[in-house]
């Protein structure tokens, strides 16, 4: 056997374990999920299944709960993405101009991301509680009116976003901060020498150089926003009156509380379609922009 053939054989042997896992836990599930979405599966009834064609999908599009969940997910994404971008960038800029203690600040800001969602949610549930919570206590002590953080259908989603922001914005700040530090000092110095003011430097030099990283944050935050689950599940259980029940929670409850696996699978494909649609759209916009 030649050395090259040996290398090929060894290579395939090393590749096989992962490929086996990949086949069983990635490829097969995708196929199974596709199959599930066109049947009515009753696990209780010894797993009997009945082919129903595209009915699960058409049921979803007619289902009021599906549209409420889509709306909730959309609302979360629309609130969350700009908040993460603005707050994350602002904090990165602040840290970047620190003289001392930058590493310390970076660590502190990143710390909340280490908390699991259950702990975060239970803690914030108490912060937010209308009557007995920390926030309203502070507001009332200061002479204000309590805010119906989680009990008002319009207020609940912003509250969920506020918690999520505290929980995850540290990661964004760290990424943006590193990008800021990689901007060569000469660019900024040159602009300053030309007499540009600070806000001009930011608008004309810093921001354009940050564009790639901000785009990355935009895309990843949007995709993870579509997948929001634990925060609302713990904080509000999806309420009040489903105002914060996103698509993933709807899918989860349909399949695992309502026993409707086929319908749940169809919902997850619709979710995938939305994410894929967003990615394609985003790439198209970018292409058009670059062509200009």
């Amino acid at each position: 056997m030649t050395a090259r053939a040996k290398q090929q054989v060894t290579g395939w042997i090393l590749l096989l374990p992962y490929l086996a896992f990949f086949a069983i836990f990635v490829v097969v599930p995708v196929i199974v999920s596709g199959w599930l979405s066109v049947v009515q599966l009753d696990l209780a009834n010894a797993g009997a299944s009945k082919f129903v064609g595209l009915q699960n999908y058409s049921d979803a599009l007619k289902d009021n709960f599906f549209w409420m969940a889509t709306q909730a997910t959309g609302k979360y994404a629309i609130l969350m993405v700009p908040s993460v971008l603005i707050v994350g960038t602002a904090m990165a800029l602040g840290m970047n101009s620190m003289k001392r203690g930058r590493d310390m600040a970076r660590t502190l800001i990143y710390l909340p991301s280490m908390l699991n969602v259950a702990a975060t949610g239970i803690l914030w549930q108490w912060f937010f509680n209308n009557e007995f919570g920390l926030f309203n206590y502070g507001i009332r002590q200061a002479g204000g009116q309590g805010v119906p953080w989680l009990t008002d259908a319009n207020m609940a989603m912003p509250s969920v976003v506020l918690m999520s922001l505290w929980w995850t914005v540290g990661g964004t700040s760290v990424i943006v901060l590193t990008a800021l530090q990689q901007i060569p000092k000469v660019f900024l110095e040159a602009a300053a020498l030309d007499g540009a003011r600070n806000n001009q430097i930011f608008g004309r030099v810093t921001l354009p150089l940050l564009k790639p990283v901000l785009l990355f944050v935009f895309v990843t935050t949007t995709i993870t926003s579509f997948q929001m689950f634990g925060q609302a599940m713990i904080l509000t259980g999806g309420g009040p009156t489903f105002a914060t029940r996103g698509l993933v929670q709807f899918m989860f409850e349909t399949a695992f509380n309502g026993y409707r696996f086929g319908y749940g699978a169809a919902i997850s494909w619709l979710l995938f379609a939305m994410i894929a649609g967003f990615s394609v759209l985003q790439a198209q916009v970018l292409k058009v922009r670059e062509a200009k």
Binding site: Q125, N129, N130, E131, F132, P148, L150, T151, T236
Partner: peptide, 15 residues
């Protein structure tokens, strides 16, 4: 009654 809040009516009672 205060606006309904997840499980916290009981919490108010026990505190």
């Amino acid at each position: 009654a205060p606006p309904p809040d997840n499980g916290l009516g009981w919490f108010g009672y026990r505190t």
